[in-house]
């Protein structure tokens, strides 16, 4: 098997003063895989996600993105190129859709904006793409001219997904995408995520504290505690045969893991 990883993270370290938020984190992500990251609040999950995307300065370590042409070291990428990468081949889904959406423009404009960012100018094409993606994420396309604040929380989250996916990214970083949604809405989003990952061959890094979500979605799992990865493996290995004391505690504290 000579599959190339899509992303390699080596010895990534980030501190906030005295606090080690991410302590020498290393892993590889392969195409079409969902990597779950679980851990309690403050364990460094969100910092890791932001550090991978270089949305905040890191102390040491290396993040390498292997796209079709050549490996890209994110730290050496000039800022405009990094921003462009984030708008095209990478996507970021925020926990709170209000952070990932522009609330003062319509749903269609939210989706179209990313296309315009990469140089598309034909209004008709952009609108067609926007309505196609609304349908993909199960929002009625006739809501294309509605503002996001008129959407429910679950719809806003799906709109955010459409906004990210319209440029057909290869890698999507998600921070608690199902947090704050009620159970039935969450199930719908999970099903949608799963089928989109398969049809678009997406790779996803999914940060969550919900063990049920990683059980259903993630192929692989990393468990973080105090800025360190304390255990990793296939999702079912980590959840069915947890070895680290913290993972055992986490799994045994979950109802129906």
């Amino acid at each position: 098997m000579t599959i190339q990883p899509l992303l390699t993270v080596e010895q990534l370290t980030k501190t906030y003063g005295e606090i080690q938020a991410c302590d020498r984190i290393s892993f590889s992500l392969y195409p079409g895989q969902i990597l779950g990251i679980i851990g309690e609040s403050g364990s460094g999950k969100t910092t890791l996600l932001n550090a991978i995307a270089h949305r905040l300065p890191i102390d040491s370590g290396q993040v390498t993105y292997h796209n079709s042409i050549k490996p890209t070291h994110l730290a050496q990428l000039p800022e405009p190129d990094r921003r462009r990468l984030m708008r095209t081949e990478w996507g970021f889904v925020q926990q709170n859709p209000r952070d990932g959406l522009r609330m003062n423009v319509t749903a269609g404009a939210n989706i179209g904006e990313r296309l315009m960012d990469i140089g598309q100018r034909h209004y008709g094409n952009i609108r067609t793409a926007a309505s196609k993606w609304l349908a993909q994420v199960e929002i009625p396309p006739e809501r294309i001219d509605a503002f996001p604040h008129t959407f429910s929380g679950g719809m806003q989250q799906r709109l955010q997904l459409a906004r990210v996916l319209v440029t057909q990214p290869k890698l999507v970083l998600m921070d608690e995408p199902t947090g704050g949604l009620d159970v039935s809405v969450q199930a719908r989003l999970l099903d949608l995520l799963r089928s989109l990952v398969r049809t678009l061959n997406l790779s996803v890094i999914l940060v969550t504290h919900d063990i049920g979500v990683v059980r259903l979605l993630a192929h692989r799992l990393m468990v973080m505690q105090g800025g360190q990865v304390v255990e990793q493996g296939l999702t079912d290995q980590v959840l069915d045969d947890p070895q680290h004391p913290y993972t055992q505690q986490l799994v045994s504290a979950t109802l129906l893991p």
């Binding site: 892993f27 680290h244 004391p245 505690q249």
Partner: peptide
């Protein structure tokens, strides 16, 4: 909680 070392097979290196 008792802290323990990670069994060797978990260390990717």
């Amino acid at each position: 909680m008792i802290s323990g070392s990670i069994p060797s097979q978990q260390i990717p290196s």
